[in-house]
Simulated scan of single mutants.
Amino acid sequence: MDSLFSRSKISMSALTDFSNLSKGTQSHLKSVYTCLALAMLCAGAGATLYLLSLFKGLIVAVIGSVVCMVALGMTQNTPENMTKRLGLLCGFAFFSGTSMGPLLEAVIDIEPSIVPTAFLSTCVIFVTLSLTALISERRSFLFLAGPLLSGLSLLILLSFFSLLFGFSFGFQIQLYLGLMIFCGFVIFDTQLIVEKYNHGDHDYIWHSLDLFIDFIAIFKRILIILASKEKKKK
């Protein structure tokens, strides 16, 4: 019994063992996840405003998110530009949240409890995959770059054919394949952020944007999967 308990303690401690990461890398990751949390709050604000009918400009939201992302990429990562770049990240997240409004509205009409369930499920998946990437051997998941990009290309092709020929089965494949691909991107992007930092790229704002996109992509797909299942039940 004691040995069983001790094994449990060892496995739990392994989840917080980041000894393979330097103090500088750990500090950088804290900044990345702080920015990610801020982006999530802004996305939630955008979605809430849409649901309350206080901001319904979908075209403005789509254009705004693209403009903010391009502007963020074009603005130099310097201490003087930090506030501006943080504002652009928040703007991108806000507009991304707003553009999710119609999907959230449709899901709430089916079953309101799906939204918090999907969000919590996404958080659990995201945290689990992030920890997996951080406690694993350095660069061990960077080989996923090729398969993930190939999968993304296949996803685009499936989307095109589903749209062109109206294959509902193709949509289901696209949905689950997309979920798997973006789960893979969470692991890949997390390890890539560490490698970028170790090679002199300290742009934690842009790094948080990569993870934010992964999180939203997973959240959307879980929302649709749960809503589809609930709709079939009803």
Score class of each variant (00 low, 15 high):
17 D>E: 05
157 L>P: 10
21 L>W: 05
123 C>N: 07
191 Q>Y: 01
74 M>P: 01
44 G>K: 04
81 N>G: 06
186 V>G: 05
116 P>G: 10
60 V>T: 12
108 I>V: 14
167 F>H: 09
134 L>W: 04
5 F>I: 15
50 Y>Q: 06
63 I>D: 02
41 L>Y: 05
68 C>I: 05
15 L>E: 02
13 S>A: 12
39 A>I: 08
205 I>V: 15
96 S>K: 14
73 G>A: 07
214 D>Y: 02
136 S>E: 01
164 L>Y: 01
82 M>W: 05
146 G>K: 13
164 L>C: 02
50 Y>I: 04
89 L>T: 10
36 L>Y: 03
38 L>Q: 03
180 M>P: 00
186 V>T: 12
18 F>D: 03
138 R>L: 01
111 E>S: 11
136 S>G: 05
180 M>I: 14
115 V>S: 03
223 L>G: 03
42 C>S: 13
133 A>K: 04
164 L>I: 01
42 C>E: 05
177 L>R: 00
205 I>A: 07
21 L>F: 05
199 H>E: 08
132 T>F: 09
131 L>E: 06
28 H>V: 03
223 L>Q: 11
141 F>Y: 11
39 A>M: 12
114 I>R: 10
220 K>P: 04
97 G>A: 07
177 L>Q: 05
234 K>E: 13
161 F>L: 12
78 T>C: 09
213 I>D: 06
214 D>E: 09
230 E>F: 13
217 A>Y: 08
99 S>W: 01
92 F>T: 07
131 L>I: 15
5 F>L: 15
166 G>F: 08
218 I>V: 11
110 I>D: 08
111 E>T: 05
56 K>R: 15
106 A>Y: 03
107 V>F: 04
213 I>L: 14
17 D>G: 04
206 W>E: 08
8 S>W: 14
219 F>T: 06
149 L>I: 09
234 K>G: 15
159 S>D: 02
142 L>P: 14
132 T>A: 04
193 I>D: 04
165 F>K: 09
95 F>V: 11
38 L>E: 02
156 I>A: 12
3 S>M: 13
209 L>Q: 06
101 G>L: 09
38 L>F: 06
20 N>K: 09
63 I>E: 02
189 D>V: 01
38 L>S: 06
8 S>F: 15
172 Q>V: 10
77 N>S: 14
93 A>N: 10
63 I>Y: 03
199 H>N: 12
228 S>W: 08
81 N>Q: 13
6 S>G: 00
